[in-house]
Design a binder for these strands. Structure first.
Lengths: 189, 189
DNA sequence: AAGAGAGTTCAGAATTTTCTGAACTTTCTC
DNA sequence: GAGAAAGTTCAGAAAATTCTGAACTCTCTT
């Protein structure tokens, strides 16, 4: 695949714990499943996982190597993750390659994800609802009554959906009550 | 069967407003898009839409006819919708075919949907997390510190996710404050 | 008990999504 | 400026998902 290892250095990190470690495999596996719960491509979950599993930022080539995926996949996966704010690029002076760190705040993670996937669809729907009421005029009164109630329900849903996101984000922003102190240190916004 | 059905009645509803009406098309279109926001098959959205658009319960064959999809699609789509509680079968005495009505409570809709899609994945994740901590022993202290913090964050997320669903459902259960009275009538649980 | 109606199942077709690999752009180094 | 390193893009391949249609089961009717 890639023109690997010019020198004979076997592995870039401590052999037991670096790339390909059990820890890395498990974490990657975990995020692959999580990604599928959100119907995102497996590769996207894997990329986030490998970043999450690494104590140091990784470059695109690191990711390609560790996951054995193509540069194309890695590039577009990273682009998606950046767009939803799930990873951030870091630029170290004197290094040409961009390295990436995973976002650790669940609040920001969810915000970006929902913003990307659900919100645009909801927006579209809101406009459409306006134009629906007049179409009921064709129906006989009895049926129109039933359908008008449904249309009202639809508007109610729309209203609730709009208020739901801020509500959820508020919830995620608060610290867990009754959690052991250790669980909180600097891991969330 | 009831003797009325076999006669030569051209359409089961008033021609202008029944199957194929503008109202039906718009509603179906709306739910097709909504389905895609949840990454469900378009046909599933269309089936829910056609039920939502109809003032009376529809049978599998009604759906097949109005959406021009195969019986197989309709059958499995209905099955999925029933499983998540988005439609309910109705059995009228003296009629052999099952007819379906859409669920109108957004609370129940979302409960079922999340139960079906997200919850099993979260469950799976919880077990896996337990076994992760020991794998960090291989890492040098400096790196282990970073990764241990991430593992704690992961546990925090898990905890929040667990509490989030009931919280959301609570929100959806309450009536909208400051909404005009008309928006509320009997449309939600 | 034969036949019709209602609905399910599932193998393969059609469609959509995801991934690869090679060509390309841009930026840095010598 | 030539060459190399880093990263993007995109056409086509591969994989996954969804849909169809025909065969099948079950139940009710006569």
């Amino acid at each position: 695949m890639n023109g690997a290892a010019e020198s004979q250095v076997p592995l870039p990190e401590s052999a037991a714990a670096g790339a390909g470690s059990a820890w890395e495999r498990e974490v990657v596996d975990f995020y692959i499943h999580l990604a599928q719960a959100f119907s995102l491509p497996k590769s996207v979950g894997a990329i986030f996982g490998v970043l999450f599993a690494s104590p140091r930022p990784l470059s695109l080539d690191d990711i390609v190597e560790r996951l054995s995926i193509s540069k194309g996949s890695a590039s577009s996966g990273l682009k998606l993750l950046q767009r939803v704010g799930a990873v951030q690029p870091t630029y170290e002076p004197g290094d040409r390659r961009t390295r990436y760190v995973p976002e650790m705040s669940i609040r920001r993670l969810l915000t970006g994800l929902l913003q990307e996937t659900v919100t645009p669809h909801l927006r579209r729907g809101a406009e459409q609802l306006e134009s629906l009421a007049p179409l009921l005029d064709e129906y006989p009164p009895e049926e129109r009554k039933v359908l008008a109630a449904r249309l009202r329900a639809l508007n109610t849903w729309q209203g609730k959906a709009k208020r739901l996101l801020p509500f959820v984000l508020g919830f995620l922003g608060r610290p867990l009550r009754r959690a052991k102190a250790a669980s909180e240190s600097g891991t969330d916004a």
